[in-house]
Structures are given as structure tokens and as C-alpha cells.
Amino acid sequence: MLDILHEYGLMFLVGTWPVGPLGGFANTLVLAGLGLGLGLSFPLAMLLALARTGSIRWLKMLATVWVYTFRGIPLVMVVFWAYFLLPVMIDTTVPAFATALAAIVVYESAFLAEIVRAGLDGLPKGQMEAARSIGLSYAQAMKSVILPQALLNIIPSLVSQFVSTIKATSIVYIIGVQEITFSAQQINSIEMTRALSVFLVLAAFYFVACLELSQFARWLEARIRARQLRPA
């Protein structure tokens, strides 16, 4: 197994880059990173959750349909759907990476939105009432009072979903996105007989990434909680 890592380490890490496009583990991280926190699905999920908990009827319905739809179909269907539908819709070719990103964003936003909604609904009603009573607008109350508490409370669930998303990116190799599972497939077809070792290395990469993310989240949560309970 170590000799696989030794021989193909670079291919696992960056694919055929710099000769070819960036691939391998690096591309997995880019895909997951863009798809989640920094990128798009988490902000989108916040908007969906606000719509779901808000009082504007049509927005609520729209967000509910979005959540039920993308939560109710397998990711691989969303990926295929994006692969075949997106180019038709915008009448141009879409790079595989962008297709995969779009699919992951809409799919994960549905799950993340429900986590955020649980965080919002989980706070005592009095928090919003008190915030509005001192004259804050809905947006100000959300920003200064509700979200800081809600987001802290949902860190554990968010991490689970983030971890699950990192792993879910593995599925996009089927449309030719050169991420780490794609690299593993290539290595496997070069080596032919060592599938077990190759995929064990692959698993280790995912495991380490998820472990690091979990530990970072634990550190972050502890730090915020410590600051909130700092001695007077």
C-alpha cells in the first residue's frame, strides 16, 4: 500500500497537473471548498432557511419545494441532470467541473438549509421578541442576535453534512471531473491488479480530510464557547 502511495502520490494529490488540468485530492478540496462554506451552498442554505422560517408565503413555498426536491433525489441523478440539462438551458458547453459544482451546490443546499432551519427554530421565541422589542429590524435581529446563536448551536450537524459532502464529491468522477477518485481509477487501470491497495489509499485521503475538518470544527466551537463564557 505504501509503495502505491510512493509511486503515485503525486497523481493522488494533483492528478496530471501541471501537464494536464488540476486534479486529484487538490481538486476534491477545491470542489468541496467551493461547494460548501466559502462557496455557494451554505449561503444559499441560509437564504433557504430564512425563507422557510419567514412569513413571506411564496418564498416559503419556493424554498420548501427546493428542499423537498433536492433532498428527495439521489446526488448521482442531480449530477446527470446537470450534465445533460445545464448545457441545453444556457445553450453552451459547460465544463465538467462547473457542472459538478452546480449539482453539489443545489443538492447540499437542501440538507444544509434544514440544519440551519433547525438552528433558527431551536432558539427560544423570546430571543426574537426581545430583539424586536428593543427596536431592531428583522434583518438586524437575525444578524446580531439570532444567527450568532443558531450557527454556533448547529456546528456539529453542519460538520457532519460538510464531511458527508466531501465524500459525496467522489461521485462526480462519472462525468469526468478529475478529482481524487478519478485519479484512483486511472491508477487502478495502470496497475490492473492492485485495486485493493489503490482504493485503500483513496479511502485514507478522504478519512484524513474529514478528520481534519472535524477537528477544526471542534476547536472552533470550543473557542467560541470559551469566549462567550469568558470570566468577567
Binding site: 427560544p124 423570546g126 430571543q127 426581545a130 422589542s133 428593543i134 450568532p148 446563536q149 462567550q228
Partner: peptide, 13 residues
């Protein structure tokens, strides 16, 4: 209008 609640409703963070 000031409002004081039964459950205080201080912002805990």
C-alpha cells in the same frame, strides 16, 4: 417602548 419579559430574554452570546 421598553419591554421587560418574564424570562429576561437576555442575549446569551
Amino acid at each position: 417602548i421598553g419591554f421587560v419579559f418574564q424570562q429576561f430574554n437576555l442575549f446569551p452570546h
